[in-house]
Nucleic acid binder design. Structure first.
Lengths: 203, 203
DNA sequence: GCCGTTCCCTAACAAGTGTTTGGTAGGTTA
DNA sequence: TAACCTACCAAACACTTGTTAGGGAACGGC
């Protein structure tokens, strides 16, 4: 019954990508440690041992999921940071780019959020800490630049603001569903409007 | 060596509370499923089996941690909601109360955030879904009331705003450390300033 | 028709899991 | 002194975990 072969016309590593996608989905839903390799195999229509033809460990799957996500994320971020925009425009572009990444890699983002804390302790996932540092540098730097140029308020704790902005953007992965009634750009617009101008009515 | 008896003068279930506190700490740090009962016992200076003198299962510990947290949380929330404040003042009070709860139950909040999604499927943890509904009702209702009375902007999607506010408040548990340089009230003040008035400079 | 490759299955492995059972040291009560 | 309770240990239990080894069906190229 679980014999959907489809066309094997294309290159080679197509199946591998499919398996990573289903694994990411299960990891995101159940948590990495709570996910058994048998459950992933089940979802993919095969037996547990067969996964080891494609991957050499459960950890390798997680590694590949997270690293490919971060690679793509930084392609987008680096493009924004290299564009030479003003502080406010940079924040707007970063937020929009972030919601686009959530749209594309919802599962990976959810996994990253749940597991990154204790994964950074493993040498294999050292690149998570690197990415986190670069991330903080980009956001915090932009916020500080904005305070200097009087684009942003000076009476707010920049580091606190950074944490709030960072968290709110990325937790969206926990409730966002692609194909829902809001596009990533629309969500970004609403979010930016709230964070930049506030929700209170001005008088 | 792990024989710190202290005074056993007080009532009976004092040790129970200590064990729950260390269990909560480990759950929060490693995740519930990734935490072994041997690890908890280790941290408490005893053997795995001995835990079963105090609790009848690992799940029971989690249950007790989460339910006592939610009970205390709703004591605070209900008091705020019954005070008959205006929309803006209600939001301010809810946010402040939330950061106080994070200060008191950091571990429980972190656990709740990581695990609530898949715990709600278990009948035993049905009260999590109940609490979530009450929670949404309180926040969403207040926001809508604020839009009606023109305290909050009408051009923002209320449900999106609710999600952003909710998430940002509670993820704080992942980086907040009691005894740090910011008190819960100070964090609440900064956060409210950002969400209500925005971070951009007005002209 | 044979060879090699791709992809999966069958069956087992050792280590680790939550939990149980019976026992026991030490204190309190009678 | 005897009975009892509290809080733990020691040792095992059944089960699940990630992983491996060997085999085989389907298919394309020669």
């Amino acid at each position: 019954m679980p014999k959907n072969k489809k066309q094997q016309v294309t290159a080679v590593p197509e199946r591998r990508g499919e398996l990573l996608a289903t694994a990411a989905e299960v990891f995101a839903a159940q948590g990495y440690n709570a996910t058994t390799v048998r459950r992933i195999a089940d979802e993919a229509g095969m037996l547990a041992g067969s996964l080891y033809y494609h991957f050499d460990s459960k950890e390798s799957m997680l590694d590949e999921i997270l690293s490919t996500f971060l690679t793509e994320l930084w392609e987008g971020y680096d493009a924004v940071l290299a564009a030479g925009l003003g502080p406010r425009e940079t924040i707007e572009a970063l937020v929009t780019e972030s919601f686009r990444e959530i749209d594309r890699h919802r599962a990976a983002v959810a996994i990253y959020q749940k597991e990154s804390r204790h994964l950074t302790e493993l040498p294999r996932f050292g690149y998570l800490a690197d990415s986190q540092r670069k991330f903080e540098q980009a956001w915090l730097g932009t916020l500080e630049r904005g305070v200097e140029t009087k684009a942003f308020r000076a009476d707010l704790d920049v580091r606190l603001t950074y944490r709030f902005v960072r968290d709110t953007v990325w937790v969206a992965a926990s409730w966002y569903r692609p194909g829902g009634q809001h596009s990533p750009e629309e969500i970004a617009r609403q979010y930016l409007s709230m964070v930049l101008d506030g929700i209170a009515v001005r008088e």
